[in-house]
Design a protein around this nucleic acid. Structure first.
Lengths: 209, 209
DNA sequence: ACGGGGAGGCGAGACGTATCGTCTTGACAA
DNA sequence: TTGTCAAGACGATACGTCTCGCCTCCCCGT
């Protein structure tokens, strides 16, 4: 049950135990197939057998390395995404402009159908599986939030944001309405909405407010 | 496909077509059984056959009136909840106090295991089923948001909130971080958190800020 | 006013299909 | 020699459809 959502590394890495012989070719084929299939048929109709067949792989090869289709999808999705958050947010000295720029780009990304299916599926699968939820949060959600917290902290040190503001809560005020809107489909993610949200959040962060 | 999540009313009401004969007894038994079972085994392992068996009902009776287990659950859950949002938020003239009071109570509710399972299941099922999502939003989410928008509007008219504030976005800034935290398990819903959130949101709403 | 017929919902469960997760086989690579 | 690989057989489970009598209510003819 350990490593439930983080299978052993591919051959070449050196774990505590001797590296197991694993086909990198099969691993990539499985990840690619799962991403392609979830876009075509949706998460509910995504099956292990379907992934295996599409990847030209035996079912056992999937069951050997992953505990569930959600874990496969999380791996597949993480690989494509995690270099994005490594670079941090831009800092031009104008907090509002920086936030609007990045959130507008994020809105475009969230409106991209290729992105929607797997991300929705993961968000959703996590809600009913606490263990997967933790992996999803740790590997995708938290890193995304942290870059905003860092940017807010920088603005705080520059005097652009009041010193007594809880930057974590402020980041949530910015990001949660955004992702909630998208996840629950309570509204469109337009540039107008992003701008309104950023402006209203920042009103409460200004020094002396 | 019409009425996908809103089956015909029980006998006695008069629809456009002649009222169908439907057992109210079976309807209640199905709703009760689905709520009980989702709490016991979780959403993934909730099956139509299980509900039918628990309710002492034929499978066909469920398939006749609902399109999916999610639709059953939505009906079951809605029945218990919708009188709650009918009464609106308190208005003592102190917006911060009113919001904290209600959100603290909501936090208690969200921390109640009996509430968690079905609500999580619905939020989650909706993300992968656009039609169910709409029903979930219309019948549960939107009414909940609206009472906050109304309360904010009242505060706006009382001069407690700046006139140019978009009350809808403001309500989302308050509620989305809250529900996001709970849904994704990114943090605890404590009274402290609620208070911090309310205070920070309201900082941006004050006139002249 | 009433009583018989018929239409339709009802509980029960059989049915074929799909996918599950496990297990076995023989080839192949380290 | 040892462990992974592709392929697929296997029993179990739940799906959604269907058929069966039973029962209840509504309507119509008397």
């Amino acid at each position: 049950m350990a490593n439930k959502t983080a299978p052993d590394s591919p051959p070449g890495s050196a774990g505590g135990t001797p590296t197991r012989r694993r086909s990198e070719r099969s691993r990539r084929a499985i990840l690619d197939a799962s991403l392609a299939l979830v876009g075509e048929v949706g998460y509910d109709k995504l099956t292990i057998e379907g992934i295996a067949s599409r990847a030209g792989v035996g079912k056992q090869t999937i069951y050997r390395w992953w505990p569930s289709k959600a874990a496969v999808l999380l791996d597949a999705f993480t690989a494509d995404v995690d270099e994005y958050s490594a670079q941090g947010l831009p800092d031009t000295g104008d907090l509002a402009a920086d936030l609007k720029l990045v959130l507008r780009a994020t809105a475009d990304e969230f409106n991209d159908p290729a992105f929607q299916a797997p991300y929705r599926a993961l968000a959703v699968a996590g809600a009913n599986d606490a263990e997967l939820s933790r992996a999803f949060v740790d590997r995708l959600l938290e890193p995304g939030i942290r870059v905003y917290v860092d940017r807010l902290r920088a603005a705080q040190e520059a005097g652009e944001v009041a010193a007594d503001v809880d930057t974590r809560v402020a980041a949530e005020m910015l990001l949660s309405p955004f992702s909630q809107r998208w996840l629950m489909r309570t509204g469109e993610l337009t540039y107008d909405y992003v701008d309104t949200l950023v402006d209203l959040v920042l009103r409460g962060l200004r020094p002396g407010s």
